Simulated scan of single mutants.
Amino acid sequence: MASTRSVAQTLVRRLTRWGAASVLIGGVLAIAPRSRAFGLQTLMWGAIDLGIAVFTGKRTSLPKKSALRRILLVNTALDVGYVATGAHLAVRTPAFGGRLTAADARGHGLAIIIQGAALFVFDLAAARRLSR
């Protein structure tokens, strides 16, 4: 059975790596006009992921195992919502009153799908480790 601390530490490490990679890759892709939307969305998610990892990593106290598992399962449900939202953007390509081109909507949507799917895997894997 995994301890709450080891699960939290593993999750913070994964989120830090994923966030850093997202910031770097997103930053590079945001430079090119054809991948700007995808790159910007990836960069922003990466920055948020890094912020969460830093904030969580500095905490000295952790919730109880059952509370952490519940938080992770709620996050997993939210991750499904992110993927669905990204799919809507990518497929339906809403223009938001002309502020977004179809190509930009697809780029933002695909980036959200990838970020949501990765977070889904991280959160679900951590929740499963806590249930053993």
Rank of each mutant, 00 (worst) to 15 (best):
L100H: 02
T101S: 13
S35P: 06
I52R: 04
L89M: 14
S35E: 04
S35H: 06
D104Q: 15
A111Q: 01
A32K: 11
S66V: 11
L68H: 05
W45E: 00
I71S: 13
V91G: 07
D49K: 05
L62C: 09
R92H: 14
F55P: 04
K58P: 03
A37L: 01
A30L: 02
G57S: 04
P94M: 03
K58I: 07
A118E: 06
A118D: 09
W45T: 00
G97N: 03
G107Y: 01
G81D: 04
R92E: 13
S61I: 08
K58N: 13
A47W: 01
G46P: 00
T42I: 07
G98W: 03
G109D: 00
Q115R: 07
R34N: 13
A90S: 09
L72W: 01
G86A: 04
V83C: 05
L50R: 02
R36F: 06
A95C: 09
A77L: 13
S61A: 15
D104I: 05
S61G: 11
I114A: 15
G46W: 00
L100N: 01
A90E: 02
A105S: 11
I114E: 10
I48R: 00
V83H: 03
H108R: 09
V74T: 13
R70K: 15
R106W: 08
A102F: 05
H88S: 12
V54K: 12
T93Y: 04
G39N: 03
G109Q: 00
L110R: 12
A102I: 06
A117Q: 02
A47G: 07
L29C: 05
V54F: 14
L40I: 12
H108T: 08
A84E: 07
T85C: 11
R99C: 11
P33L: 09
M44L: 15
H108G: 06
I48W: 06
T60E: 15
L119Y: 07
A103N: 08
H108V: 10
L62Q: 05
G51T: 02
I48A: 09
R69C: 06
R34H: 13
A87N: 05
A90W: 05
V91K: 10
G107S: 04
A117K: 05
R99K: 15
S66W: 10
T60M: 12
D104Y: 03
D79G: 11
S61E: 14
A87E: 05
A111C: 08
L110H: 11
G116S: 07
L78D: 06
A105D: 04
T76S: 12
T56Y: 12
A53D: 00
A111P: 02
R99G: 15
T60F: 09
P94H: 06
I114P: 02
L110A: 12
A95E: 12
I31Q: 10
L40C: 09
A84N: 08
I48E: 01
I52S: 06
G86R: 00
